[in-house]
Design a binder for these strands. Structure first.
Lengths: 212, 212
DNA sequence: TAGATTGTTAATCGATTAACAATC
DNA sequence: TAGATTGTTAATCGATTAACAATC
């Protein structure tokens, strides 16, 4: 049931969420049509690039007018798979974990976090933002029973790899690692190592450039 | 005093932090030498790519042996400017803000968050993780006095743009926006719109691909 | 019609990969 | 010496930009 007959290039895929955000903002303003120029400005991308990206899955723009916001938004939701629900678990209910649980946008992207895990006895058995917290001892058992395929790691760096190992054993197919540590998994598991600090390098670089 | 005689390509710059992370891990294991193969595996990048990236700023590898971990780490710190201290403020002391204040790695990257701002009267005047919280009313005044150039936005989406406007007025030169909203700033200000949910699109895409 | 903006082709640019000699 | 791994050149690949006719 995947609408993946369309092969979306890697870089286009990274830009689409930015376009989507812009469309949501347009809708909030009751704007009916939007130009590639405007989308590009919001996404910090060239307008031609925007049109080309959109053309990949049957662009529906009107010359002289632009794109119908509602139509384009619906189309993007389809391509990005925002209508598919993916259940996920999150391991590590610290500050970062809590921030992610409540980050507005994850739910919107179809990511339902259904269970949390932590090693802190004070948290186990409680609810955080409406989700039950289980012991990390139970990861294997619970994930297998619930047949969850996506996991988010927000534990301290030193535990990230061993948690990942357990997750893989439990049958997890995709891991999103926010812990500030490099982890490795077997090739059949999709891994995304998110490094929040990495963006800093880019930011500082451009800042230094502007000051020259 | 910028060592920017070396022009680092955009994509290389994005990979360097990942290499750096790997080097730190090697050092923790007391590993003396590391191969481009190993770095590449950790960073999910081709080994040739790694060597080419490193060669850009005078590679120091030894054929048949690899790179000296300590030397390479020091070199990367120089290129990434991790030794320069950048003072910053953070606006929005919610879950996300707190997570970022304490995220291990920001300090390591030379980002010192020196002041916080929030509109919640209960927080104003208190300290969070050792930083004073000021009223958002005082942004203009305080940033100008402290001559801060970098700001991190972690307020709810609907306030992001108006906060950004004030920051620009206060003389901020670089904005790192974690609020789930697109914001726009004058061209003399460096802007990075971070979309935590954007990574999800990539993750789901690969996941769907594997399942075909 | 005139102005705006799209869709697309061709040209450019830069990133990635392949191949291999050089070196420890 | 044999094996491992680097550094670099050349070839490929894909992304970005420029140009412009087509369309509303």
């Amino acid at each position: 049931m995947h609408s993946d007959s369309i092969k979306v290039p890697k870089f286009t895929l990274k830009r689409l969420p930015l376009y989507y955000r812009c469309l949501r903002a347009c809708l909030d303003r009751n704007q009916e049509y939007v130009s590639s120029e405007q989308i590009g400005k919001a996404a910090q991308v060239n307008a031609v690039q925007v049109r080309k990206d959109l053309a990949l899955f049957g662009a529906m723009g009107t010359p002289g007018v632009g794109y119908c916001v509602a139509d384009l938004k619906a189309k993007l939701e389809e391509v990005l798979g925002l209508n598919n629900v993916n259940e996920a678990v999150l391991i590590g209910v610290g500050r970062l974990g809590r921030a992610i649980i409540d980050y507005p946008g994850f739910e919107r992207y179809g990511l339902h976090i259904v269970a949390l895990f932590d090693s802190n006895p004070e948290l186990i058995g409680t609810q955080v933002s409406g989700r039950p917290v289980f012991s990390t001892q139970e990861i294997l058992h619970i994930i297998r029973r619930l047949q969850i395929k996506v996991a988010i790691i927000t534990v301290p760096a030193e535990y990230a790899q061993s948690i990942a190992n357990v997750l893989v054993e439990a049958g997890i197919r995709a891991i999103w690692n926010f812990a500030p540590a490099v982890i490795e998994v077997p090739s059949h598991v999709v891994l995304r190592n998110e490094d929040l600090a990495a963006g800093l390098a880019t930011l500082f670089h451009y800042l230094a450039e502007r000051n020259e």
